[in-house]
Nucleic acid binder design. Structure first.
Lengths: 199, 199
DNA sequence: TGTAACATACCAACCAGTCAGTACACAGGA
DNA sequence: TCCTGTGTACTGACTGGTTGGTATGTTACA
């Protein structure tokens, strides 16, 4: 239907994203973005109200898409609690390849949004976390996870493990996204120690 | 002996740290720092060669202290492997209170160091991670951790869990640093699932 | 002929860093 | 006691450069 060839607006957004990731938001000037595409600032401001509007677009796209994907996993009645945990971790690790730049910019540059815009993004980011917390809570109540587990802290642990990967994981390395996600899920679910009764 | 009253250099360093944490390195001008202390830019450049030198000081102090503390834990022969893992996690979480600002600036602003300076900091940061990896590897070989655990990924998992806390944990909240660290260590060591033989 | 899609030229604000100069403490000699 | 020299800890004005953003032109095509 659409998806024919990228318009100038898309080109600007993509070039900006790459530059923001490499150099950072403040360190990338509007002129830099324009040079990258061989256009002038007039063009930029024809498509975007401000540099910050562009940053907001990047943030919104990232978190909204992530929430949608997460919803698909959490509402899938065919999955057990442990499978849902595995699926969420895999989704986050796999996304590093698919939209790693967007993710890194999201975590790093959010503070450059003004208060009004941050007030729109932060609740969405929190919702993502609260959904995981709710998954763990339901799992604990159902007996799938241990009763002494604090769902809030477990959610932070999951997010910490997965999101920290944005800092080091490159899909072209020695390990595939699937291997990394599987190993992380196993650590979170089963821990690194052997069963106490085997020791 | 010393420690009478903080000299101007210390005052500048402390004020800068607070501002870098709040607004970011690039968003804080040397003038901002000077305004905070009621001095002029001449004073700043009397004590520091450049704004970046100051940033380097902050980075060096953070990672060197961290490595020293880590060494104390890893070389303590009275601790088992699991106790060392617990101690390292507690050390990182507790540090959020003690030097949280320094840690957040460390993770966020490192890219503003020039290549030469980064080349000095990055190996130290990597050493911290490799030491944890080595701890896990030794634990696996000694049978304290499961043989199928990948030490490299386990180290990343530990660091992810602990370092992500810098983004949300405030020691004055509902949970103490000890509680958070204990919960995280339990998750990493034992997982969130009950023993398979109980299911 | 009109308008969408750009280009050009410019501005006010801000930035890191420089530098000549100065107030003052303190030491040593007469 | 006074004078003189010297280093420390600053000040304040300045520079060259960059920035986000704007006002106004120009062109290609429907």
């Amino acid at each position: 239907m659409n998806e024919e060839k990228p318009g100038m607006k898309t080109l600007i957004a993509e070039a900006s994203l790459a530059l923001f990731e490499q150099r950072g938001f403040t360190e990338t000037s509007v002129q830099d973005i324009c040079n990258e595409l061989g256009v002038t600032k007039g063009t930029f401001y024809y498509y975007f109200d401000s540099k910050e509007t562009l940053l907001m677009d990047i943030h919104e796209q990232y978190i909204v898409t992530l929430l949608e994907e997460q919803k698909g996993i959490l509402e899938d009645d065919n999955l057990t609690y442990r499978e849902k945990v595995r699926a969420v971790i895999y989704m986050l690790i796999r996304d590093i390849e698919k939209r790693g730049a967007r993710g890194r910019v999201f975590f790093r540059e959010m503070r450059h949004l003004n208060d009004g815009r941050k007030a729109k993004i932060v609740p969405l980011r929190n919702q993502f976390r609260l959904n995981i917390e709710q998954l763990v809570r339901a799992g604990v109540e159902a007996g799938a996870f241990r009763s002494e587990i604090n769902p809030k802290l477990a959610a932070f642990a999951l997010l910490g493990i997965a999101n920290w990967s944005y800092q080091w994981f490159h899909p072209d390395g020695e390990l595939s996204d699937r291997e990394v996600a599987d190993a992380f899920a196993t650590i979170l679910l089963e821990g690194i120690e052997p069963d106490p009764r085997d020791r």
